[in-house]
Write a protein that binds this DNA or RNA. Structure first.
Lengths: 345, 345
DNA sequence: GTGGTTTACGCAAACGTTTGTGCAAGTATA
DNA sequence: TATACTTGCACAAACGTTTGCGTAAACCAC
């Protein structure tokens, strides 16, 4: 009873040819001038036997799979999980299914993963690259399959991307700290040389420079991990000149930093202030709620899918590059040391 | 230059037949007694032109895609994001790629999503069902494609599953509250009738019964959302008999509850205690750190993949049903009202 | 030099679609 | 009444693999 239901079996049961059945079931009945009666018959039979076309065969024949690839460094990071969530949902709304690759920040995983996506004939790929070299991806985008970058991008690339204006974010976050009287600000970065890090750091440095404090810059760290935030903070808390504020470049780094601070018995923001990049529901519930530069995660996800769809539909590479403005969300993790000085002095 | 690289083009360039090329490139050279020299030639050419087999064609022909489907209610929920993370990584370690479907707790999304997975000939499906009826999935598991349930399962089903021992979790969490002197405990549940909710509630009720407090049971709520936790807590804070403790059945419900409590100006745990299900990094950083029944997320993910692989390899349904023990993590969100009464009295 | 193995490969069908082209019968036009 | 469209469908190739079977040549034994 669970026979195979193919276009062929339907053709045999209805007496029409395979091509006619195909045209009817793929909505080309009109164009092929199939008679109303025939359409009826075939559709009935298709419904009766619960026919579902083989997407493999369809993809093989048409070279279109209605599938996109999503390549991210880590689904464990809530930032990427949120990004993935909106991308998967948006893609579905366009009729696309998403294949997810988690690279764990490893370049060879990235290559293998993308190769696997291409072997599957995905119609497009959204990727947060962990490597530095755009050439490979550019080549794919030009000759094979549309690629859209999110979150991270390359120096001068023809690849379209959508990301936060990281320079602005770094600048404004630092300005906020400066305006609250902090002059000894530690910046804990993630994967060095990645564009977001470089831009955020550039913003940080420029803000310091604006106050003539460039030589006070302190940049440490090397990965977007809790561990990194923890260790770097641990180190600095024991240093001679303890910073009055920490600028964490991601939510993971933030958590590590907070852990270290708590262990040292210091209080946020009384003893040390902290500000972070990223945004998520939990940050409002942390003790104290964390002041942050919020990235527009949903917008990034939605726009990246939209760009990819455009590139797929127009069958050509596009070159849209979008930088979205981050937003400062002020909570209670940054103390105003000017007021404090007044009070004390 | 970016010619198509198929087994056919390689066959033309090397002068060997398509079948020979196929056998060599799919590792069947030995069995087919292809000479060492031929193997060399073909492999060289394949490497030279960077040949990657079409997984569509391969899947169509062999009925094996090395792909699994993952169906979850919401990637926004950090619990499912963590689950997805380990599943995607583990599957990759077995050589499988994962297609993710986000049902948004909607049964028709679930059906469509799974239909789409089947149309793609996935080799197996891991699913957290949002519907109540196992029949459809059981049928798929029997006749078409292996299915493994995670997190939620059905009353009496032949489907294999791996989940937390939710009864035990509900029971122990409630016991912990009772042992701390709470007798007025509000339980805020998620999607009703889902097995985890029913089991956790059963545990809650049984613990109360053990102290002869069954008539004090208060169960409210209807979904695993922040909104639900917020509204139910809001309601109860204004009721005549304010509970002394809240048992939130998920991290989302927890966040909503905390928000409501804060808005009311009450303090945790001095005015009201709270305990939750689930576990994640952030819960340690919340004010105060939240006491919780931790589900073994990674184990659930790993085991579900393992079971699915077993079912795929053995080409038959399996009936392993695993309940993993949750673990109580004591933090600071539950007050001991006995001690307090002593002090006050 | 005959018969039987072994070695090394090729032929062609099949997986389930889509689609360009062909063609008979019916209808309209001249 | 011949000509020209139109209607309604069928044929068969193609997408890129895998695989059962067939077979020519070489080798061996006698």
């Amino acid at each position: 009873m669970e026979k195979k239901n193919t276009i062929i079996s339907i053709s045999e049961r209805t007496g029409f040819s395979v091509s006619t059945v195909s045209r009817v079931l793929s909505g080309k009945a009109e164009a092929a001038r199939i008679s109303k009666a025939t359409v009826e018959t075939i559709q009935q039979e298709a419904k009766r036997c619960n026919y579902k076309p083989s997407l493999l065969a369809k993809g093989l024949r048409t070279n279109k799979t209605n599938t996109i690839g999503l390549v991210i460094p880590s689904m464990e990071n809530i930032y990427f999980a949120n990004l993935a969530s909106t991308i998967i949902r948006d893609a579905r709304a366009y009729g696309y299914t998403t294949v997810t690759v988690d690279t764990m920040e490893d370049e060879s995983n990235e290559r293998n993963g993308i190769d696997s996506l291409l072997a599957r004939n995905v119609d497009g790929i959204i990727v947060t690259p962990c490597g530095q070299d755009p050439a490979w991806l550019e080549n794919i985008n030009r000759n094979t399959t549309p690629v859209v970058l999110i979150d991270r991008y390359f120096n001068s690339t023809e690849l379209p991307y959508v990301c936060t204006d990281n320079y602005q974010g770094g600048y404004e976050a630092t300005r906020y700290l400066l305006n609250n009287g902090h002059e000894n600000i530690l910046c804990i970065q993630g994967t060095p040389y990645s564009m977001p890090v470089r831009e955020r750091v550039r913003g940080y440095l420029n803000a310091l420079r604006g106050k003539g404090l460039e030589e006070r810059a302190r940049i440490v760290g090397d990965s977007f991990s809790i561990q990194n935030g923890y260790l770097e903070t641990k180190l600095v808390l024991n240093s001679v000149s303890r910073p009055t504020a920490i600028f964490a470049l991601s939510n993971t780094i933030l958590l590590g930093a907070i852990k270290a601070i708590r262990e040292s018995g210091l209080s946020i923001p009384n003893d040390i202030s902290i500000i972070t990049f990223d945004n998520n529901t939990f940050l409002d519930f942390i003790d104290p709620p964390v002041t942050r530069m919020s990235q527009p995660v949903n917008e990034i996800g939605t726009l990246s899918v939209k760009l990819l769809m455009q590139s797929i539909d127009e069958k050509r590479p596009i070159d849209t590059k979008l930088q979205l403005q981050p937003q400062l969300i002020v909570c209670e993790s940054v103390a105003n040391v000017l007021l404090e000085a007044e009070r004390v002095g």
